[in-house]
Design a protein around this nucleic acid. Structure first.
Lengths: 262, 262
DNA sequence: CAGTGGTCTAGACCACCTC
DNA sequence: AGGTGGTCTAGACCACTGG
């Protein structure tokens, strides 16, 4: 058998003010941080921990739950609790919407993914007309109806991002933007062909815990926040021609930006 | 008394596969999303929920814990469980390191905060010389010793950000950068005076759940992720002259970036 | 089948807050 | 003092996984 992890865990300090379940969590966290437990390794079972520390099962479960919400471990029903493997992260560079990529016929997500050497996919595409949500209308500067393009992106089969693009109907109606497949270079390439030469994008980045529906759509583990990114595209006339509302699994991305020191 | 919130909660569905504590969480979440419970409002007490749903206290506590990890509510010992108020967020604009701010004698955090109309503070300043952590050395392109400036930023008294700047010793030693107070315009102004004209900054943005130490330093509530931002400053010679490693309370910030469409 | 985690019960004592 | 949430116990039954 492998080395006896449970035997090497720190003992409880009965004189400490710190709650027992926190002390148990501390000792397991310590074992992970010191590398005694590596990525993907199985933690001692609840029963083993109950024996080792001489506490009730709920106390052990409290400790494990704490580590889960910290994003350090993942419980798998019927199998055990495992040190969470760090999934490969994708770097999104600040030139990801550069025209040269569109010119090559690649949409931003696809170009980024291929550069990172992973297989990208898109699914659950929904295109419809609707009244824009308030936040979107504020950014578009209009409450008139929009075309909403919703899709989900996957990475080697794992869902990592959902995105909804909102384009004013007066721009999108009757164009390929309203089709499920917007063609080479994505909707930004189509917008430029329609005479809306793109000038810049403004991105707003937030982070928070996922709503239950986001947890479902992205199959998120406990302890995984989401990055909420809202991007507004402006043409050279200064008009907002698209707003893209994106929810990303935070453990799958690093966002990269270049700022001028000017 | 106020309206009877607990009486308006949805009933349990005994035929559902969904766990009872999840159904209870669902009904409370629903009340929050529908606005029956507003920001700062007190949820029904555990005892009230136990009576209303006819379950054991641990079942109710499980439901409340779920809502806490979702960041929707905050439990306060001896007082109750409350709908989490959305703290005022600060927008960080992509021109926050523009030279015109330094010229006005303001460091980036101060300038941003004043623009947002909040009172900024800095505390627990530590300045020392050390070997750079591996990640920092990689960005500086050197493993030689650095000057590390650690500080914590507060917002109307609330800690919202910790930051550590690493500057190569051959640049910083003997200058005002090595002093606790770097002078007007902050260390970037000093770097430029020393002949390192700044060209651009590269920022990397990640999000994850906080480590216990970060939870302490930022006094984070359950269900609050952190934004981990690493900024590298480059001078016009292309040399990395500073790396700043920042941990921000995710509920206190919106990051804004402008991307070229070029 | 045995081992694992998931849910739930029915209590107990404690620490904190407000009155 | 009485209400609130925080911790802990000692059980029970269930659902999933693996050999």
């Amino acid at each position: 058998m492998t080395t006896d992890v449970v035997g090497q865990l720190a003992r409880l300090d009965p004189t400490s003010d710190r709650a027992v379940f926190r002390q148990i969590a501390d000792s397991l966290r310590d074992a992970i941080e010191r590398g005694r437990l590596g990525e993907g390794d199985k933690l001692p079972s609840e029963a083993q921990l109950v024996n080792h520390f001489g506490v009730a099962r709920m106390t052990v479960r409290n400790a494990l739950q704490l580590l889960q919400t910290e994003g350090l471990v993942i419980a798998e029903h019927g199998k055990g609790v495992f040190v969470r493997p760090r999934p490969p992260v994708r770097r999104l560079a600040s030139d990801r919407f550069a025209r040269r990529h569109r010119k090559q016929g690649k949409a931003a997500f696809i170009a980024e993914a291929e550069q990172a050497g992973v297989k990208p996919e898109v699914d659950s595409l929904v295109v419809k007309q609707e009244a824009p949500p308030k936040e979107i209308a504020a950014r578009l500067g209009s409450t008139r109806k929009v075309l909403a393009r919703h899709r989900r992106y996957l990475h080697e089969g794992r869902p990592v991002e959902t995105a909804t693009s909102y384009i004013p109907l007066d721009i999108a109606q009757g164009t390929q933007i309203a089709e499920p497949n917007p063609g080479p270079g994505g909707i930004y390439a189509r917008l430029e062909e329609l005479g809306h030469e793109l000038d810049h994008f403004d991105e707003e980045v937030r982070s928070r815990m996922p709503l239950p529906e986001e947890t479902r759509a992205l199959q998120l583990n406990a302890g995984t926040p989401v990055i909420h990114l809202v991007r507004t595209a402006f043409d050279t006339d200064g008009r907002a021609v698209e707003v893209c509302d994106t929810i990303m699994a935070a453990d799958a991305f690093i966002l990269g930006y270049r700022l001028p020191a000017r």
